[in-house]
Amino acid sequence: MPVRIRVAHLYPETLNIYADRGNIAVLERRAAWRGIGFDHVPVGIGDAIPQDANLVYVGGGQDREQALVAGDLVGKREMLADAVAGGAALLAVCGGYQLLGRFYRDRNGCELPGVGLLPHFTVAGERRMIGDILLRCELDPGEQRTLAGFENHAGRTFLDEGAEPLGQVVHGFGNNGEDGFEGCRIGRAIGTYLHGPLLPRNPWLADWLLRQALAHALGTSPVLTSLDDTIEDTAHRVAAGRARARGGRG
C-alpha cells in the first residue's frame, strides 16, 4: 500500500502574495523524493475542506484579496477545527495566520471576527514591520532549531495568555515588535508571519510538517530518509546573516 498524504491548499488563486506556492512545491518535492504520494487539493470560496486532509495550508494576500476570502474562511471554522482536532497538520502564513486568530481590529477600532482556531488577535498598526527575520524554535523537546524568513506586516499580533509561540525572535520584529514572540502553535498547527517563502530555506520545518501529516495519515510517527540539503543549508545561513545584519528591531 503506497503512502500518500492529502494537502488542502486554501484559496491558492487568491492568497498567494508572498510566493506561497514555493512552500507547496517544497512539500511536494520532498515527499516525492521519498516516495510519498502527494495529493494537492485546491480549496476555493464555497468549497469544502476534504475531511481526510492530512495537512492544511493557508497563504497570504493583499488587503482586497484577504477581505474577499475572510467571510468564507470564517464559514469554514467547523471544518478547520475538526481537521486540527483530528490531528491534521496546518501551516498558515502571514494573512492566513491573521485570519485564523480570534479577531482583527482595524484602524477605526472595528473588530472583524476571525476563525478563532489560533489563540491570538491582531491590531492594525501604523508602521509596517518589514525585513529579514531569524527565530529560535523548539517544536520537539530538546531539538533547538532556527527559522530564517522575511516579514512584511502592518498588523500587530498578540498571543493569548499562555499560548505557545512558534519561536523566539533572535533578529527582526516578530508578532508585534514588542514581546519577542513570533507565530503561534497548537500541536500540529502553526501560524507565522515568515515568508520568503518559508520552507525552501528551512527544510527541517518542511520535513516536520511532512512527519505530522504522515503521522495523521498512518497513525504512527514515521522516520523520513534524509536528503541532500547542501543548497538549502547555505541559503539558510545567508538568510540568517541578512537577519543579523539588517533585520528589523522592535
Partner: peptide
C-alpha cells in the same frame, strides 16, 4: 548573485536536477 542559493532552490524545486546547477 548575493542570493544565488535561493535562486538555485527555485530551480531545484521547480524540477531542475540539482546536478545541473552550479553556484
Amino acid at each position: 548573485g548575493e542570493r544565488a542559493e535561493e535562486l538555485a532552490l527555485r530551480f531545484k524545486y521547480g524540477g531542475l536536477d540539482p546536478g545541473r546547477i552550479e553556484i
